[in-house]
C-alpha cells in the first residue's frame, strides 16, 4: 500500500481532501467513459467521492485505494445506467457510422472523433468500463477484476467482446 492508502485506511484527518485531489480527474474520466454523458459524469464524479467518504471506514487496505475507488465509481455508474434503463444501441444501428457522421461529442470534435465516440456508446456499459480501464488506464486484468468485482476471466472476455464490437462498428469487421 502506498502512503496515501495507508493514511486513508487509518482514517487520518485531512487525508480525504488529498484523495479527492489526487483521483477526481481520473474518476471523472472513468465516469464519462462509462456514462458517455458529460453532465452526468460531472455530477457522478462528485457523488462517487461522497460515497468514498461515507464508506471510508470500510476500506480495509486489502486492495489499492484507487481500485477501491474505481470499484465504487464503476458500481455507481452501472447502477445509474440500469436505473435510467438506457437501451443498448443495437449493433446494426451503429454499423457504418463512419460514413454517417453522427451527432455527439461537441462541435470541436472531428467527424472521426464523433464516430469513435458513438462506437463507444454502442458498447454495453460493463464493456465500456472494462475497456476504459484496460485500454485507457492501462490497468492490469487483475486490477480491473478487483475494480469491477468480477473474475479475471470475465474481464478478459469483456475486453475481447469490446474490441470485437468496436472493430465491427468502426467498419473493420470485414474479413480482409
Amino acid at each position: 500500500m502506498d502512503e496515501l492508502s495507508t493514511r486513508f485506511a487509518h482514517g487520518d484527518e485531512g487525508v480525504f481532501e488529498e484523495v479527492v485531489e489526487r483521483y477526481s480527474r481520473k474518476v471523472y474520466g472513468l465516469c464519462y467513459r462509462i456514462l458517455r454523458d458529460e453532465e452526468e459524469a460531472r455530477d457522478m464524479a462528485q457523488e462517487v467521492f461522497v460515497r468514498v467518504y461515507e464508506k471510508r471506514g470500510k476500506f480495509g487496505g486489502r486492495s489499492a485505494l484507487y481500485t477501491w475507488i474505481y470499484r465504487i465509481a464503476t458500481n455507481m455508474c452501472l447502477t445509474h445506467l440500469k436505473r435510467r434503463r438506457i437501451p443498448t444501441v443495437p449493433l446494426e444501428a451503429v454499423e457504418g457510422m463512419l460514413e454517417a457522421a453522427p451527432a455527439g461529442g461537441g462541435p470541436d470534435y472531428s467527424r472521426l472523433e464523433r464516430a469513435v465516440s458513438q462506437a463507444m456508446v454502442g458498447l454495453p456499459p460493463r464493456q465500456r468500463a472494462v475497456f476504459a480501464m484496460r485500454f485507457f488506464e492501462k490497468m492490469s486484468v487483475r486490477e480491473i477484476a478487483e475494480a469491477t468485482g468480477t473474475t479475471t476471466g470475465a474481464v478478459k472476455a469483456n475486453y475481447h467482446h469490446a474490441v470485437r464490437r468496436l472493430k465491427e462498428m468502426l467498419g473493420e469487421g470485414g474479413s480482409t
Binding site: 458529460e38 469513435v116 485500454f135 468502426l170
Partner: peptide, 20 residues
C-alpha cells in the same frame, strides 16, 4: 485481421473525455 485490430485500436485511442 491483425492490421484490422490495430486500426480499430488506433481509432479507439481517439476517444476523448470532454474537459469540464
Amino acid at each position: 485481421r491483425v492490421e484490422s485490430l490495430r486500426r480499430t485500436l488506433d481509432l479507439a485511442a481517439m476517444d476523448r473525455v470532454p474537459e469540464p
